[in-house]
Design a protein around this nucleic acid. Structure first.
Length: 714
RNA sequence: GGCGAGGUAGCUCAGUUGGUUAGAGCACAGGAUUCAUAACCCUGAGGUCCCGGGUUCAAAUCCCGGUCUCGCUACCA
């Protein structure tokens, strides 16, 4: 593989609606940072871009939760996230934001170019518009009389009574469910990215050309999408938060770009901002074929970075990504990380507890980087446990890496007067030579792993190198030679030569360790440099594997410990904290995800109703007398419910929460005057009321004691 | 239900195009040692390679069926 002229590395734009957790860190930012640091150590031309994704509907939703404005939300979280990354040593060349005017201009330009060239399709429709609410109405927000069966409360997409699919235009006397007013018709036009036109290109590019060099899970996911048939995807939407369409675009007023379209363009605007900051040209990074573009993301983002954005880039005349090393998910203590349940570890929390707390150090950032790299979900989901974290620190960082550096320096101070001892070539043993020989081999191993995005294995090789240092010292036993003295108490010259050689080599190994560990643990690498009294420039990769990095006679600093032990109490504290935090705090830090718009966790309180509206509902107590799973549906249970006056079949979407056998005999609350509806071929006559808790689990709503089936509820 | 990725030691994971006795780190046990943060070093124990068939001289690896986990998707009024 020939080396490209330059690299552009991106890490998924974090969504600016709350703190990001360590799953995000392990999935995208940390591997990206390791890769970038390695490339930079190689002195390659590389730009590492990232930034906050500040559009989409989740931002205004978060704003209403926090009782503030969308702008205030992004202004709050953008700097916080930027600082979190800094504290953990994630070293972006630019951390931009999509609310920046430069981004808006870039995204508009991108849209315009595609639109002018005819790469977007449009669809103009007359859509119902609620003047009172000042918004276009989605189909299900419109009600009216069904043209088919005259049922007066049919929805805009389907009549509940006769089951006929409808469009809002067919409804007689349509009414907005938001305001209750008759909506007016307003012409609206939307733009679409016709992905279906590019199926051949995607098939060839991904399934042929990258079948082997991309991760299996990435290719598989793409294949699944392509085989499923690609559909045109709406690029615009009627919303007031986002990148407004260019003014000269006819019919574009009041519309913004869909967040999935504008967010990845954020990589380009970030590069432009970097260009403004540094005076370097941004264009080659996005246009020159000699640039290698790499997107680091989590697996939830595969479709955007492998299907949609590449199509956009290709149409716009940009280069395509060379690889998209998507990671799987990171679980926490036996369970999926969840923001809504607060089962997670935020970067901010880790920083507060281990780095910025009294007695905290920067090196604790490296401990997290170490453990997260060691368990990186490169091929399958993996799990963060506090015990694992403690073990990784105490048994590996402290005992192997930290200990080797420390014992080398201590021995050197005790046996070599605090200076790098000379190398006595004539007295080198086989062990010495083998050790020296292994330096370059270690470099090659680590290098190959890093080039192929195998960070877990790369880090393992670094530790293996440190371990070999311990074995070396053990074999050479300089502390034994230190006892070989003559009658006058003077150390024998052969013994001194042997000691000198051992420590000379051990110290050169320390210097190499600094270089090798640097992409992974940058703070540790700097600290080793400090102890060895060398400048950070030594960390350049060209020095890796060299055996003469430290010059003879150079005096080094007194040893300081690189890592401290993590006590059981600290781990217990974190576990307690995790448990006690569950379910609290559901009002802040909502759905954390990049690019993909998210659904609200709390629906806003609905429009007030009068008592008569409520009285229309007929709610009854019922008893489940039979339950079975509906075929070919994951979520549906077919229930037979005794309502006293009759027995009904009701289909309910609760299969993932209850075993059919376990709910027989349960009392339930039923809406009995809901019109029948067919689901998976079975007619459902009513609806079971359920409560959803913070964990998303469903619970029946039922009376405290036994109440006769058919009894009214009000 | 459809599609995709996985299931290998107590834990985290390697296992290239089938090829001796399936590997590593950590944890665990025993030993040795004392320069080092009760650290290191050596040795060892520990496996139904998810299950069942099939192909083959030979299967963790290839094929078929099943099962479990995760993700996407459909079903949720």
């Amino acid at each position: 593989m020939t080396q490209p002229k330059r690299y552009l590395i991106t890490a998924a734009l974090p969504y600016a609606n709350g703190y990001k957790h360590i799953g995000h860190l392990a999935g995208a930012y940390l591997p990206a940072d390791i890769y970038v640091r390695y490339l930079k150590a190689q002195q390659r031309d590389v730009v590492f871009v990232c930034g906050s994704d500040e559009h989409g509907t989740a931002i205004p939703i978060q704003a209403s939760k926090e009782g503030t404005t969308a702008q205030a939300i992004i202004d709050k979280y953008h700097p916080l996230m930027e600082q979190n990354f800094k504290d953990l040593g994630i070293q972006f060349d630019i951390y931009h934001r999509t609310s920046d005017p430069l981004h808006h201009a870039t995204a508009r330009e991108f849209f315009t170019k595609l639109n002018d060239a005819g790469h977007l399709s449009t669809q103009t429709t007359e859509q119902y518009f609620d003047e009172k609410a000042q918004t276009f109405l989605a189909d299900r927000y419109i009600k009216g009389t069904c043209p088919n069966c005259q049922y007066p409360a049919a929805f805009g997409d389907q009549c509940e009574k006769c089951g006929k699919s409808l469009s809002p235009e067919e409804l007689i006397n349509p009414v907005s469910t938001l305001s209750g007013e008759p909506p007016i018709k307003k012409t609206t036009q939307h733009w679409y990215l016709p992905l279906n036109r590019h199926e051949d290109f995607l098939r060839k590019w991904i399934l042929d050309e990258h079948a082997n060099d991309w991760r299996a899970t990435v290719v598989g996911q793409c294949k699944s999408w392509i085989d499923g048939g690609l559909q045109p995807r709406a690029v615009t939407r009627d919303l007031d938060w986002g990148v407004a369409l260019p003014e000269n675009v006819e019919g574009g007023a009041g519309k913004v770009l869909y967040v999935w379209f504008d967010a990845p363009i954020g990589y380009i605007s970030a590069t432009k901002q970097w260009s403004l900051n540094t005076g370097k040209d941004w264009r080659p990074y996005w246009e020159d074929k000699d640039t290698r573009l790499i997107h680091f993301i989590g697996k939830d983002n595969i479709v955007f970075h492998c299907i949609i954005f590449p199509v956009m880039l290709q149409l716009h005349g940009n280069i395509l990504p060379d690889n998209v090393p998507a990671n799987e998910f990171l679980n926490l203590e036996g369970d999926k990380m969840s923001t809504s349940r607060n089962w997670k570890l935020d970067m901010q929390d880790y920083i507060d507890d281990f780095i910025k707390a009294p007695g905290g150090t920067e090196s604790m950032a490296d401990v997290l980087r170490y453990y997260l790299t060691q368990i990186a979900p490169e091929t399958k989901d993996s799990e963060f446990t506090w015990k694992g974290f403690q073990d990784a620190n105490n048994s590996e960082l402290v005992s192997i890496l930290g200990n080797f550096i420390n014992r080398s320096l201590v021995l050197m101070h005790k046996l070599c007067k605090g200076k790098v001892p000379p190398l006595h070539v004539e007295s080198l043993t086989e062990t010495d030579l083998a050790m020296l020989d292994s330096f370059s081999g270690a470099r090659t191993l680590i290098e190959n792993n890093l080039e192929n995005f195998k960070f877990r294995e790369g880090l393992f090789e670094v530790m293996a190198f440190a371990r070999s240092g311990n074995q070396y010292l053990q074999k050479k036993e300089p502390w034994i030679f230190a006892k070989q003295v003559d009658a006058a108490g003077q150390l024998l010259p052969e013994a001194q030569a042997n000691i000198d050689n051992t420590l000379h080599i051990a110290l050169q190994l320390c210097a190499n360790l600094a270089i090798f560990i640097h992409p992974f643990l940058p703070f540790t690498a700097s600290k080793i440099c400090y102890l060895l009294k060398v400048v950070d420039k030594m960390l350049l990769w060209e020095n890796a594997g060299k055996t003469k990095l430290l010059s003879t006679g150079y005096s080094l600093r007194a040893p300081e410990l690189l890592f401290r032990k993590i006590e059981d109490e600290e781990i217990a504290l974190q576990l307690t904290k995790l448990q006690s935090n569950v379910r609290m705090d559901t009002t802040t830090n909502p759905g954390a995800e990049e690019i993909t718009p998210t659904a609200p966790e709390y629906a806003p309180v609905k429009e007030s109703i009068v008592y008569d509206d409520f009285a229309k509902l007929d709610l009854r107590n019922g008893k489940i007398i039979a339950a079975e799973k509906v075929e070919k549906a994951d979520k549906l249970l077919k229930l037979t419910v005794d309502l006293g006056f009759e027995t009904r079949t009701i289909v309910s979407g609760i299969a993932q929460h209850f075993q059919p056998e376990a709910i027989i005999g349960k009392q339930v609350s039923v809406v009995v005057n809901l019109l029948p509806r067919k689901m998976r071929g079975i007619e459902s006559n009513g609806m079971i009321l359920m409560a959803e808790d913070a964990e998303g689990k469903l619970h029946f709503i039922n009376p405290e004691g036994e109440v006769a089936p058919g009894s009214g509820i009000s």
